[in-house]
Design a protein around this nucleic acid. Sequence first.
DNA 1: ATTTGCATGTCGACT
DNA 2: AGTCGACGTGCAAAT
Lengths: 209, 209
Amino acid sequence: MIDITKPFMLYALCSVEYDGRAYSTLEKGRYLIIYKKDGSVIIHGSDLCKARNYQQSGSILSIEKDKLISINKKEKITIDIIEQINYTPLEDWSDSKIEISRTEKELVDKIANNHKLFINIEFAVIEREYRTDSGPVDLVCITPNNEYHIIEVKRNKATINHVTQLRKYVDQMQENDFKSYGYLASPEIGKNAVEFLKKNGFTWLKVDF
Amino acid sequence: MIDITKPFMLYALCSVEYDGRAYSTLEKGRYLIIYKKDGSVIIHGSDLCKARNYQQSGSILSIEKDKLISINKKEKITIDIIEQINYTPLEDWSDSKIEISRTEKELVDKIANNHKLFINIEFAVIEREYRTDSGPVDLVCITPNNEYHIIEVKRNKATINHVTQLRKYVDQMQENDFKSYGYLASPEIGKNAVEFLKKNGFTWLKVDF
DNA sequence: ATTTGCATGTCGACT
DNA sequence: AGTCGACGTGCAAAT
């Protein structure tokens, strides 16, 4: 009836139990179950984009009486099938990925290539993904007299967390005894983030696609 | 043929274009399209848990010749349907949510109720969700002489970001001239997080379910 | 295999 | 509506 060797979608009256990183139950009801060729299992309810339950790529699906069981390393989903409403195998399912543009990298490039428009200083060195002991910084501009202008770039609205992240980098450079300035570059920025920026003496750079 | 007044799943040969927070295209292929009663649209490829494309709750779906178009505030998905392979309306789809246990709150309670096992000090006050200007702290224990022990709790492996978060809280208390100690409590902790903890003079508390 | 940080993150809670 | 933090975050790239 259900062929677990092939991808399928199954609309069924069922209940679900998950045990792994947490424990959860989904009460009896009608849900959409999807099984993919990489082993992933996805269970959708009637709203929201996120699955109610899921099991990631690499999981192994088995069937036991009326139960679908998917096991990953330390995770297990048990789907108790009470009634199959619609079972459809999915043949020749495409695995193409989406092609994305307007990424963070684009913004970093834009600032790097037009830095004069953002920070009107002559720099000796401009580096992307500049390595620090606190992780890579999106963009670092260094003056001839070794002052570090540290720029953290976000592709949409910047939040207070991103200021914290920036601060981590600036502190790191200060510890290494380099005079440093912090910048957060993004198309938009939250109100609290602005305050926290000021408080830390950092600057916001508005950058758009 | 396609009734956009009701939830459905549609397996179709199609291509997809998204414009909004980013821009993306999905090349022609067979994909599974799901439409839910809250307006969400989800497009799945043959692998991974995450949808290739999606539109969140509150979007409006319309149909124009062979195109399904879903619009949200500033976002738009266009699905060019070339061939319908399987169209199935989803009747009486349940909207139950999952019931979760083993949450962060459980751990917070455990530490609060057995704080002697974690920090062997007599406290005058123990507060959950303690409000600071930098946001609520999971757990704060205050000694009779007003020393603040600030505990950030994570339900699984703690990372360097969580140390940063903890530091934000501790700094906030220091600014208010309270002597403060920082703790990160979790079942596990990453190597780099341990180092960053030490560097900040904070302490890790191992806590399990 | 593990760690790190991005993401069209999503989602919920609270202001 | 805007902000903030949790999430079984998922996921890919780098170490």
